[in-house]
């Protein structure tokens, strides 16, 4: 059967394609610029596809950003694991072991998610220095774990709300305690919750910049700080920052493309109230 395309549909698809072009233009520009030789980059031909391909931009950018990449990988993996575990435990208490005042405490937790982090930066800086962990990755990991508590608790609390309370109650009648119920019932059902929470934390921590620049010394700078410094110099050859942007952006974009529906769930979690 032949499908008919109505004028309305035609307009719909043209608008959509137009918007796709708008949203992908920066990607096109990034890729073609990264593949050019510095001497081939000039402003008037900036939109043209390169005549000769320079893969060297990537190895050059990697020479500069390699240590930052390593830092970011260590930071992101450690902080994500710690904060999702903590969030899972908190969410379990907030949803299945409510006590007098637990809702108020949860609300007070949530507030921590929305503060502009400048308001805690100075005491954080002082405390990390007093603890002798200023400047390195452990301090940064601590910050990400602590300030990750609100969002991870929220995600797990909402996720565990779906586990029927009857299941918990009957396990209790069978004599199972707090930890046994968590290990035998709740934790095995938690995989989707862990996926949503860790994707969220992964992208947040990988992309974070303010703490990276204020709380770490040069050798411990994460990728965002490295990239900002690479691109921030005065006479930059633009192929290098563009290659650097691809390195810094690709991990999160890949996660987003392959695990997009969990990413979106994390996104909506923070916004739509139950």
């Amino acid at each position: 059967m032949k499908t008919q395309i109505s004028p309305g549909r035609l307009i719909l698809y043209s608008l959509l394609i137009l918007m796709v072009i708008v949203y992908l233009i920066p990607v096109y520009m990034t890729i073609i610029t990264a593949l050019k030789f510095p001497e081939d980059i000039n402003l008037l031909t900036s939109w043209d596809f390169p005549d000769r391909i320079n893969w060297g931009s990537f190895s050059q950018a990697y020479d500069k950003l390699g240590p930052n990449l390593t830092n970011s990988i260590i930071l992101t993996i450690t902080a994500t694991i710690l904060s999702t575990l903590l969030g899972s435990l908190n969410g379990y208490v907030f949803s299945k072991w409510k006590f007098r005042g637990s809702e108020t405490i949860f609300t007070l937790f949530l507030f921590g998610m929305f503060i502009p982090y400048q308001i805690i930066l100075i005491p954080l800086f002082q405390v990390l220095r007093a603890l002798n962990i200023y400047g390195g990755l452990p301090g940064l990991i601590l910050a990400h774990v602590v300030y990750g508590i609100p969002i991870t608790s929220l995600i797990f609390r909402n996720f565990y709300a779906q586990i029927p309370t009857g299941l918990i109650k009957s396990a209790q009648l069978d004599g199972a305690g707090f930890f046994r119920i968590y290990c035998r019932i709740v934790f095995p059902l938690s995989a989707p919750g862990f996926v949503v929470a860790s994707i969220w934390q992964f992208t947040q921590i990988w992309n974070e910049f303010l703490w990276g620049i204020c709380l770490t010394r040069h050798t411990s700078n994460p990728i965002t700080v490295g990239l900002a410094q690479l691109a921030g110099g005065q006479a930059v050859n633009w192929n290098m920052p563009m290659a650097g942007s691809i390195m810094a952006g690709l991990p999160v974009v890949l996660v987003y493309i392959f695990l997009g529906k969990y990413f979106i769930r994390g996104l909506l979690e923070g916004a739509i109230k139950e």
Binding site: L227, A231, P241, V252, V255, Y256, I257
Partner: peptide, 19 residues
Amino acid sequence: VFLYPLSLSFIVSGTIWRW
């Protein structure tokens, strides 16, 4: 396509838009 920019760091998108 419409959502991918959101996953990027402001530093990455900022570098690209600066160019």
